[in-house]
């Protein structure tokens, strides 16, 4: 049985918000009987883009993470729902029946991802339904995928075994594996959102003029063990990524054939640009 999955490549999302807008367009003012009642004009982000800035000027990066109903195979919302208000379709899509779910605010609270929204006026919990009403009419992909200008969103309808192979091959991640809900939405390059970097700029005075030092070897160690090694670019900049937040003290050793090595210690909270490291 082929089932729907969504793959979100965080590195490709540039916050166009076309996914959010296509959901707004599809569900605001439209009733889709059997699937969803209309979304309120304001306040609902069935697709909700998270923003994270890392580092400090002038070394920063920005990551956007579209989040939405994960269509979990072990959906906590289904467990919390009364009256069979939430169903899991054979194709993997989770649907909240707007009639049966009326008044059941506990469904909103049950979602550990915060992906279910409470419609105050109609007193129903609502979430992104993977555009199931359109897929059932023969559409090839949900509208957020069609409207995404960067290819950050991909929908795939394949066997679960095949999907698990892709998860392994492409190193896909769950947004919150700790929830253990077997989500059908997978993320690529999620480290840009969850991990930290240490960066800096290597400089030196050459002939009395301050210059960027290219190709300095930068060694990052923790507790005497090498964590990573890189080298500085033409602007003297280096960046070591994939570190855990709040992971304590690191030592940076900068070495270059023309200069004595330099050591800098940094205690990593969030991503850190250590500034200039001047070689003698």
């Amino acid at each position: 049985m082929k089932k729907w999955n969504l793959i979100v490549d965080v590195a490709k999302c540039h916050n166009s918000n076309n996914c959010f807008l296509s959901v707004a367009d599809e569900y605001m003012g439209n009733e889709h009987p059997g699937y969803a009642t209309a979304m309120p004009k304001h306040g609902h982000h069935w697709i909700n883009i998270l923003r994270s800035e890392r580092g400090q000027a002038p070394m920063v990066d920005v990551t956007y993470v579209p989040t939405m109903c994960n269509h979990c195979d072990d959906a906590p919302c289904m467990a919390a729902a009364e009256n069979d208000a939430i169903t899991k379709r054979d194709d993997g899509i989770v649907i909240i029946d707007p009639e049966k779910a009326k008044g059941q605010k506990q469904i909103v609270d049950a979602c550990p991802y915060g992906a279910i929204w409470w419609n105050e006026e109609k007193e129903v919990p609502q979430a992104w339904i993977f555009d199931a009403h359109l897929l059932d009419r023969g559409w090839k992909e949900p509208r957020c995928v069609q409207a995404c200008p960067t290819g950050a969103l991909k929908s795939v309808k394949i066997e679960d075994s095949e999907m698990q192979k892709r998860v392994a091959d492409e190193e896909l991640q769950e947004l919150h594996p700790e929830h253990g809900t077997k989500p059908r939405v997978y993320y690529k390059n999620l480290d840009l959102f969850t991990k930290c970097f240490i960066g800096g700029s290597v400089i030196a005075d050459l002939n009395g003029v301050e210059e960027c030092i290219e190709k300095a070897i930068v060694l990052l160690s923790k507790d005497g063990h090498k964590v990573a090694e890189t080298w500085s670019d033409a602007f003297g900049e280096f960046k070591i990524d994939g570190l855990d937040a709040e992971s304590g003290e690191y030592e940076i050793e900068v070495s270059h054939p023309d200069h004595p090595s330099k050591f800098v210690n940094v205690i990593l909270g969030e991503s850190s640009y250590v500034g200039t490291i001047k070689l003698d």
Partner: peptide
Amino acid sequence: DSAINDIKDHRVN
């Protein structure tokens, strides 16, 4: 009253 107002990097409610 457009949907764009709800984009978090456009306006804030």
